[in-house]
Computed example of a mutant assay.
Amino acid sequence: MNISLHGKRALVSGSTAGIGLAIALGLAEAGADVVINGRSQPRVDAALATLRSKLPGARVQGVAADLGTAEGVCALFQQVPQVDILVNNLGIFEPQGFFEISDEAWSRFFEVNVLSAVRLSRFYAPGMAERGWGRVQFLSSESALQIPAEMVHYGTTKAALLAVSRGLAETLAGSGVTVNAILPGPTRSEGVGGYFARLAEEQGVEAERLERDFIAEHRPSSLIRRLATVEEVASLSVYLASRQASATTGAAMRVDGGVVRSIA
């Protein structure tokens, strides 16, 4: 399959590392003009340098803005008034017991994981509909279907994204704009890798061992028995952004290594 996104402009929120950066690279490889985003200019500059080193000649732009706030989103809109492909990737996670999660933490997770995607979609999707073509994606998680006891607030926000995604798809029916959610399973992103590295240092063991133990203990239904790579998740995003995926909308697409025990 030859995926070409030449002539399309894409925005990937929270894309200076991990899954977001891998998606940005994949979209750029397919020919899209890509806007990456992070909270600080040094992080954005470093990500741009990485993309350009891996893909010389890539048409990439960076915008430093905290999209977990209304002010940051407005700042982005001023610099990027229109896109054809929107990937709502921005998200945070933090293992914490339910009874220890404060109101402040609940609000922060909702602002970053849900409202950032709502605000971006509300701004960009109408223009896509007017032009008769567009792609909106929400990075949810298998944790939306199997709420993890160790971070209920995270799972709740990822479940909310499924509702927003399906509702927006219904809203844009017949417009030429597709809206889908992507549900990664445990993935070796920068954040996850750093978390395991810190634990490994504290416990004096290898990070690889902790990853295997985590899958065995917390995600025993995994069929690949390992963490996914960010590139594996990005491949699904690039396909959903393509013209070939024009009949796929309103869907929750899993790239979870078979963690969710479901035939649907």
Rank of each mutant, 00 (worst) to 15 (best):
A169T: 12
L139Y: 04
I92W: 12
E217Y: 00
P186T: 09
I36A: 14
P42Y: 08
S121C: 07
S4E: 12
T69E: 02
P220T: 08
G204A: 06
N88E: 10
V179R: 03
R243G: 14
V12H: 01
R226Q: 05
Q146P: 00
L145A: 14
P148T: 11
A207P: 04
G176I: 06
Q96G: 08
A125D: 00
R108Y: 03
L145Y: 13
N37H: 10
E211Q: 10
L55P: 01
M151A: 13
Y239M: 11
F99H: 13
R212W: 07
A181R: 05
P184Y: 05
E130C: 12
E202K: 15
T16L: 02
M1N: 11
A234H: 11
T157N: 13
L145E: 14
I182G: 03
V136L: 00
S102E: 12
A70P: 10
G68D: 03
L48R: 05
S53Q: 07
A173N: 09
P186V: 11
F93Y: 08
G97S: 15
L199E: 15
L76V: 02
Y154C: 08
R108C: 02
R135E: 03
H153S: 08
I92D: 01
G258V: 08
E232W: 06
V230M: 07
E201I: 00
V136A: 01
G258L: 05
I263N: 14
F98P: 10
P95K: 10
P148R: 11
R212I: 03
G132M: 06
L227S: 06
T178A: 13
L183N: 11
A125R: 00
I36L: 15
R52F: 02
G174S: 13
A245Y: 09
G72T: 05
Q137G: 10
P186I: 11
T178C: 14
V255G: 03
V259G: 05
V230W: 02
G20E: 03
A159M: 12
S53I: 00
L67T: 01
G204Y: 02
A241M: 12
Q61T: 15
R198S: 15
S40H: 13
D103V: 07
A264E: 15
G26S: 09
